[in-house]
Design a protein around this nucleic acid. Structure first.
Lengths: 192, 192
DNA sequence: ATCCGATTGTGACATTTGTCATCGTTTCAG
DNA sequence: CTGAAACGATGACAAATGTCACAATCGGAT
């Protein structure tokens, strides 16, 4: 059950994990199952866990004054889900994180974070993650201010083909910051 | 000369720095002066330094196929400038970082990064910075996909009033992902 | 002081994208 | 199996934003 996590850590930390360290990790993470549409965390509540997705798909979104949802992140297997701001500072979250398919997640409570950070491979993995995350967000901002709807979608499709398969179109549209009708038209054969 | 940096570290790390540690920091950072329009780092070249701005203002931007500039970041005193991707991995950068006013920067070569990371306060400051940076980018993405041009500008103006004062309008427009004419119209009295 | 480039403002118009209404299709719980 | 809800497509139109052209203004270098 923990294997995908161990693999992930070793890949990103570019270092092995000792058996003793694996025990620490096993005692820090816990398995949680969520069914479709169940919340991993909610707006107004503290995000209690960092989750490593073993199975399933999630979306993280905010809801504006007019009730419109804006999708900030879509995630599938081997991705992490968490509202860092809320999780780290234990403050109320501005986002919902919702299972979009029945899911299995390894969850890490905030208090256990400091424990596993004593493991060098974990530290180095988190640095790397933080780095990658930064780069991805920077790229997303760059794309959003530079490209029109068509190119943003083509880009997204190229980068995350699996995501496109597993989420409905109107959620992809929301992620890209365009109306669902616009995405529907973009996907129409004539324009591609 | 190093005082603003020490203050910054102590504020973000929420911890003091010992005198010995200050010496390490002093020997890791070096002062660099740049005049207006001088590059701190360039597209295609490795970003050699992380810079802490003592004085002046910088912009980080990419240039697309049609020669259009897209501003990813604007920065002034007490901010950091670096293309993390390029700096960390020592790979060619996709961005230009340019002084927009005559500037003084404390620069940290990549090789010295590991040295100062042995100082706990520095580690903790970098975690915090990384955290804040993540939150800011996440917010920027959220704003960009959720809000129209007027609200994005109002937002920006409220968040970074100093920046608005010190950069020309067309660069603010580029940062916000709108045409300079559009921003000019937004700022026209009638609409506010 | 003066000149030149950078910056800003503005009108006219084009293009992109959003909004609204509606319909057909798919999915899924009971 | 079946009905309701979710999803996706599409036309008509509206609104937002971009593009182009040009004028006005500002600001620094000589």
């Amino acid at each position: 059950m923990y294997e995908p996590l161990f693999n992930y850590i070793e890949r990103y930390a570019r270092a092995g994990i000792a058996d003793g360290e694996k025990d620490i990790i096993r005692s820090a993470f816990e398995l949680k199952r969520l069914s479709k549409k169940q919340y991993f965390s909610e707006e107004g509540k503290v995000c209690l866990y960092t989750g490593f997705i073993l199975k399933g798909a999630f979306r993280q979104y905010s809801v504006d004054d007019s009730g419109m949802e804006h999708i900030l992140q879509l995630a599938i297997e081997n991705w992490w889900i968490v509202d860092r701001q809320s999780y780290i500072n234990q403050t109320p979250s501005a986002y919902f994180i919702e299972a979009w398919e029945d899911a299995e997640v390894l969850i890490l409570p905030r208090a256990k974070l400091d424990v596993i950070l004593t493991i060098p491979a974990i530290q180095s993995m988190f640095w790397q993650m933080s780095e990658n995350n930064h780069i991805a967000f920077q790229k997303r901002v760059d794309d959003t201010i530079s490209l029109n709807a068509v190119k943003r979608y083509e880009n997204f499709e190229r980068l995350y083909p699996q995501i496109v398969q597993r989420f409905p179109q109107h959620q992809i549209a929301s992620y890209l910051g365009i109306a669902r009708e616009t995405l529907s038209r973009i996907r129409r054969p004539s324009s591609r």
